[in-house]
Deep mutational scan, measured.
Amino acid sequence: MGFKLLSKLLVYLTASIMAIASPLAFSVDSSGEYPTVSEIPVGEVRLYQIADGVWSHIATQSFDGAVYPSNGLIVRDGDELLLIDTAWGAKNTAALLAEIEKQIGLPVTRAVSTHFHDDRVGGVDVLRAAGVATYASPSTRRLAEVEGNEIPTHSLEGLSSSGDAVRFGPVELFYPGAAHSTDNLIVYVPSASVLYGGCAIYELSRTSAGNVADADLAEWPTSIERIQQHYPEAQFVIPGHGLPGGLDLLKHTTNVVKAHTNRSVVE
């Protein structure tokens, strides 16, 4: 069995187990497998329904001669939608809004960016022009300005110390501490036991640490421990890039980060 097929099978099995364990909360999309990078042309966006009122959005972007996937989250909030992270750029984010209108038909009224990198804030200006209120932590807003990236308009308070959590509509926002970046936030959907790890969490097929220019490698494993301790009931975990899975993604990420750190020390 090929690795790609095995990865998709694991996603399907995880979703099936969740649907059985929580039949009222989960209505997993039966329309197909989780979209992969090879299936999404740059400039297009796919939506994948995880649970009743919960979707991931998947886009792709060219970077350094390669094409990478990027995940975000959409959560229903009454007759409105909360968006977590842009679709990595203005063109993708405009396509995301169009796809949401086509498939869901509810307005996106608020959006949260989970850290300051372009795959999370690139497209904020498109959201703002569409009347979406954009939010991020003060740290993310400051770092985005320093980096020359787009800056969300509103500040999220109460997320300055490791372990801080605040309720934001249908989700809980959690600051686990520094990891992929010093400002990275985690998003949890309690009604569906869905954990969105953003770039602080890796997919299972990833074996290298990737972009760690703004990471705190020493603190990252401790931050992941905080996530595990705060959300032990999480059933569906979405990484910032690639295929979702279960809580095993947290341990896998820790292993990859520690291996990278150990290699760096040896070198």
Rank of each mutant, 00 (worst) to 15 (best):
T36Q: 11
V67D: 15
L97Y: 02
Q235R: 10
N262Q: 12
F168H: 03
V37G: 15
K102C: 06
C199V: 00
G197Q: 02
Q228A: 11
N92L: 03
Y135P: 00
D216V: 10
Q49K: 10
D164H: 12
P41V: 13
R167I: 13
N184D: 05
S56K: 07
E150G: 04
V54T: 06
R76K: 07
L185A: 03
G169N: 04
L156E: 03
G131Y: 06
V37K: 12
V266Y: 13
I224C: 01
P176I: 03
H180S: 00
A130K: 12
L247H: 13
T109Q: 09
P176M: 01
V166Q: 11
N255K: 11
D183Y: 05
D119T: 00
A111M: 10
L249G: 01
S62M: 07
Y12N: 10
H154I: 12
D164K: 12
N211A: 13
L204C: 06
S205N: 11
L47G: 03
V146R: 13
L97C: 00
H180V: 00
A178P: 13
V124P: 03
V112H: 05
L185N: 03
E219S: 11
D248F: 09
L204P: 05
T36I: 14
T14P: 13
S16R: 08
V121Q: 01
Y135I: 01
R76N: 05
A19D: 15
N255R: 11
G2S: 11
K91G: 13
D214K: 06
S139H: 14
P244A: 10
G32Q: 09
A87E: 00
E219K: 08
L159N: 01
E147R: 09
G197A: 14
K4F: 08
L173C: 02
I50D: 01
G32M: 06
K91Y: 10
P23C: 13
L156N: 01
I84N: 02
D77W: 08
P221H: 07
S162M: 09
G242R: 05
V257R: 02
A51N: 09
V121R: 02
S56F: 15
S22E: 13
P152N: 00
G2W: 08
S161E: 14
G65A: 09
L97I: 07
A213T: 10
D52L: 10
T182S: 12
I17P: 04
A51Q: 07
A66K: 12
A192K: 11
D29M: 08
Q49E: 11
A94G: 11
F26N: 09
A87V: 03
R142S: 12
Q49H: 10
H117N: 01
V132T: 07
L159R: 02
A15L: 10
E225L: 11
F3A: 06
S137P: 06
T207K: 14
F63M: 14
E99I: 13
G43H: 10
W55R: 02
V257L: 15
I58E: 10
K8M: 14
E157Y: 14
R142F: 13
I238W: 02
E225F: 11
I58G: 04
G148S: 10
F236W: 12
N149Q: 14
G177L: 04
F3P: 06
G43V: 05
R142A: 12
R110H: 09
A51P: 03
W220G: 01
Q49S: 09
R46S: 09
G148F: 07
L243N: 15
A87S: 06
W88T: 00
D248M: 10
V189M: 05
F168C: 04
L96C: 00
G240F: 05
V45L: 04
L204N: 11
L217E: 08
A25Q: 15
D214R: 06
L143E: 06
N211T: 09
G198T: 07
L47D: 03
A51T: 09
Y12M: 13
S22G: 14
G65W: 06
Y188A: 03
E33Q: 08
F174Q: 02
G2Q: 15
N149L: 13
T134R: 01
L243K: 13
A129Q: 12
R167P: 12
K91L: 14
W88M: 02
T86R: 01
F116R: 04
V37L: 14
E80K: 09
V257W: 01
S16T: 15
S22T: 12
A21E: 14
T140Q: 03
K102Y: 12
H115D: 01
H154W: 12
G122S: 07
A209G: 07
N71M: 00
D79N: 10
L106P: 05
I84H: 00
Y231P: 01
L24Q: 13
T222V: 10
G123C: 05
K258F: 11
C199I: 02
E145Q: 13
S181T: 15
D52V: 11
G242Y: 04
V189T: 04
I50L: 07
V75Q: 03
G177K: 03
G65F: 07
S7Q: 11
D125C: 03
Q235C: 08
D183L: 01
D214F: 05
A130H: 15
V132Y: 00
V265K: 12
E172V: 06
A95I: 13
K8I: 08
E233V: 12
D125A: 08
G148P: 04
H230F: 15
D248A: 11
L24G: 10
P138T: 07
D118G: 07
L9W: 14
G158A: 09
T182K: 13
V45G: 03
E225I: 08
T207I: 15
D183C: 00
S161L: 12
Y175K: 01
T254I: 11
V42C: 06
V42K: 10
L247A: 13
S56A: 15
R226H: 06
D64E: 07
E225M: 12
R142T: 13
H252E: 01
Q229H: 11
Q103E: 14
N262S: 11
V212N: 07
L13Y: 15
A21P: 06
L185Q: 02
A51W: 07
P170T: 08
P170K: 07
T93C: 00
L73M: 15
V45R: 01
Y135H: 08
Q49N: 11
H154Q: 11
L173A: 03
N255E: 13
A215G: 09
A259Q: 12
H241K: 00
Y48D: 14
F174A: 02
D164L: 10
T254K: 11
Y135C: 05
D125F: 06
I17C: 13
S191A: 11
